[in-house]
């Protein structure tokens, strides 16, 4: 919070709920900045590629970020609580593999989806158990499970592929609602609203913020820190499961290398969205904007025939830049203050 508080101190009941925020204060918000950048990128894309504004292309563009954004919401909550989950992409691989196995065994779509979601929940619960109950560092735990989950996928699949998904399964990743927008888009909106409500409107969300800012104080205030953390890992597991359903349905096949390296993009989205990597602050709106931004950029670069691996350079730079830039500006600000 860089807003300077006025020196007007009021007493007791006269204290207003909210401080009048100046226009500058409103504009200086990270989310405002993101909106501007999104608009700019959109504009640049339309100039760079004549195909960009095509409705079908734009609808395709959404695929680029929706699945990642869904995980990013859950990971945002995990990061706000002061932990991290790097195993989300591996979780997708394992869930997708289990779905493939169930589909190959001849079951129908509901069972396939159920199996996928259950697997992802189990993975989340495993992380949550190790972090919240055993008390291990979430970084090392999720690095290990990242290797474990994808490893199981490799054991099951080796270098083979599952692609015997029933036709009805394709609805999730390839279907349209009211001929207007994609099923994925609908999922995205519903899930975004869900996470927005959860983080900003519920007691649970408030507890997540408190834990991220001051774990000890949270515990002393009667908040069940372990239980909240466990739930968060469950949630990020489940979000990976939903993403796995969408992605698998869209691709129509499962390889063990599915969603490789997504954890990086997800963490980048979260941090770009203004969530502090040290926990305690961030908003869902920021993550939504960041995901749209990254989707537009990757899509735009894709139209310009830039290969995917090169985009990861961009992602990596972005990740470091969004953390470094505020610190540099802070340094410059404090420096200029001193010289004044």
């Amino acid at each position: 919070m860089s807003i300077a508080f006025s020196n007007v101190r009021r007493r007791g009941a006269e204290i207003p709920n909210k401080l009048e925020m100046t226009m500058m204060g409103r504009l200086a918000r990270w989310e405002t900045l993101l909106v501007c950048v999104v608009a700019l990128v959109f504009f640049l894309n339309t100039i760079a590629s004549p195909y960009f504004l095509d409705v079908w292309n734009l609808s395709d563009a959404t695929y680029n970020f929706i699945e990642k954004a869904i995980i990013a919401f859950a990971v945002a909550l995990v990061i706000i609580s002061g932990e991290i989950d790097l195993s989300v992409a591996a979780n997708i691989a394992l869930s997708s593999t289990i779905m493939g196995a169930v589909a190959t065994a001849g079951y129908d779509t509901p069972i396939i989806v159920g199996a996928g979601l259950l697997t992802s929940l189990a993975c989340g619960a495993f992380n949550g158990f190790l972090v919240a109950k055993v008390g291990l560092h979430s970084i090392i735990v999720t690095i290990a499970t990242m290797s474990l989950f994808r490893g199981i996928s490799y054991i099951i699949l080796g270098d083979t592929v599952y692609k015997n998904y029933p036709d009805s399964f394709a609805w999730f990743g390839q279907g349209y609602l009211f001929d207007a927008f994609t099923v994925e888009m609908a999922f995205f909106i519903v899930i975004a609203v869900f996470f927005w409500m959860l983080l900003h409107k519920t007691v649970f969300g408030r507890q997540v913020y408190v834990i991220g800012n001051n774990k000890t104080c949270a515990a002393f205030s009667g908040i069940k820190v372990q239980r909240v953390k466990f739930s968060l890992f469950l949630l990020s597991g489940l979000a990976s499961g939903v993403a796995a359903v969408l992605l698998t349905s869209r691709l129509g096949s499962t390889r063990p290398s599915i969603a490789l390296g997504w954890e990086l993009e997800v963490v980048t989205m979260v941090v770009l969205g203004g969530v502090s990597i040290l926990g305690g602050s961030g908003t869902i709106l920021g993550v939504i904007l960041a995901s749209v931004l990254m989707g537009l950029v990757t899509f735009g670069l894709g139209l310009l025939n830039v290969p995917g691996i090169v985009m990861t350079i961009f992602t990596g730079c972005l990740l470091i830049a969004v953390i470094v830039l505020p610190r540099i500006t802070k340094l410059i600000m404090s420096h200029s203050k001193k010289t004044k």
Binding site: I309, T312, G316, C317, I320, I323
Partner: peptide, 23 residues
């Protein structure tokens, strides 16, 4: 110099370095 958590820095450079191999 910037006191960034090492996990974030190296996660980022991991992607950058590997991308550079391709380029």
């Amino acid at each position: 110099k910037f006191d960034i958590p090492p996990i974030v820095v190296t996660l980022g450079t991991m992607a950058i370095y590997r991308g550079l191999v391709f380029v």
